[in-house]
């Protein structure tokens, strides 16, 4: 094994150039102020992060991401169970159906939702046709959550499916044999055994959801600023790289903490999911 270590070198070099170095550049920008007087160390960018205006953006982003993650879990877990059930003849086809949307460009998919949701779009036309008032959810939180759920649902389904399909069927039979009804079997055996997959799914949905800026910009109409939008604006509109970097670092710290908490749960039952 040791002899082949050099195989990893290209990867290490790649990671160093394109991950580590940029992180340090961001870190650098977040703690200096560049003015005519030269470069000075400062914490003023981080101080701004904690202004209520911006903290609220964080809270809103986390809130929407949590809601989306919860919906993904509620929709994804039963879907994964169906996929993993043993009497499914068209399993592979259904799995492909789950994955196919991911083959399409992310932006194209989100633009497609815009056409569906917009005033007098396809969905409102149908709703009106059956005599209900138009939904008008374009450019609302609902649209943003819908976009997140749609885009990230496969990342919830697949890790849970992967764990469920590996669950030993005789363990489930053993529980029934010992007197557990199907409900109790699910609560005490199936669900606890699938927790590693659930944790992977939550991480893989929550992370992109909390950092997205495309979905909120397109479906939220830009009026509902999320943390992703805020960071993007600092780099493209206001050109305040220092503040943008501080926001990024703060977000990174939040994510690291939440992943740390997740991995604590995951460690107990390793080997689940796609990580």
């Amino acid at each position: 094994m040791k002899k082949r270590n050099w195989i990893a070198y290209p990867h290490i070099v790649w990671m160093a150039i394109f991950v580590l170095v940029p992180v340090f550049i961001v870190l650098y920008y977040s703690i200096v102020s560049i003015s005519d007087n030269g470069i000075q160390l400062t914490l003023k960018h981080f101080a701004r992060v904690f202004e209520p205006l911006y903290l609220n953006v964080f809270i809103r982003s986390i809130e929407l991401a949590l809601i989306s993650t919860a919906i993904c879990l509620l929709l994804g877990y039963p879907a994964a169970m169906i996929l993993a059930s043993k009497n499914l003849s068209k399993r592979n086809m259904l799995i492909v159906l789950v994955i196919i949307p991911m083959w399409m460009n992310f932006l194209a998919r989100t633009y497609a939702w815009m056409t569906l949701l917009e005033r007098n779009g396809l969905i409102d036309t149908i709703v009106k046709a059956i005599g209900l008032p138009p939904l008008n959810i374009m450019y609302t939180d609902y649209a943003v959550v819908l976009g997140m759920v749609y885009n990230f649902l496969p990342f919830m389904i697949l890790p849970i499916y992967s764990v469920l399909s590996k669950t030993n069927k005789s363990v489930i039979e053993a529980a029934e044999d010992l007197g557990a009804t199907p409900m109790v079997t699910f609560k005490r055996i199936v669900f606890p055994l699938s927790l590693p997959g659930v944790m992977s799914g939550i991480t893989m949905v929550f992370l992109p959801a909390v950092t997205t800026f495309v979905i909120s910009e397109l479906l939220g109409g830009g009026q509902y600023t999320l943390i992703g939008n805020l960071i993007q604006q600092q780099f493209t509109l206001t050109m305040d790289w220092g503040f943008g970097s501080a926001l990024s670092i703060f977000l990174m710290i939040l994510i690291l903490i939440s992943m740390g908490i997740m991995s604590k749960y995951e460690k107990e039952n390793e080997g689940g999911g796609l990580w």
């Binding site: 039979e173 044999d177 055994l193």
Partner: peptide, 16 residues
Amino acid sequence: PFKRRVNTVFQKYALF
């Protein structure tokens, strides 16, 4: 199975 008064020892134990 959960209503039968028999219990099973499975081939690969099937412990939780």
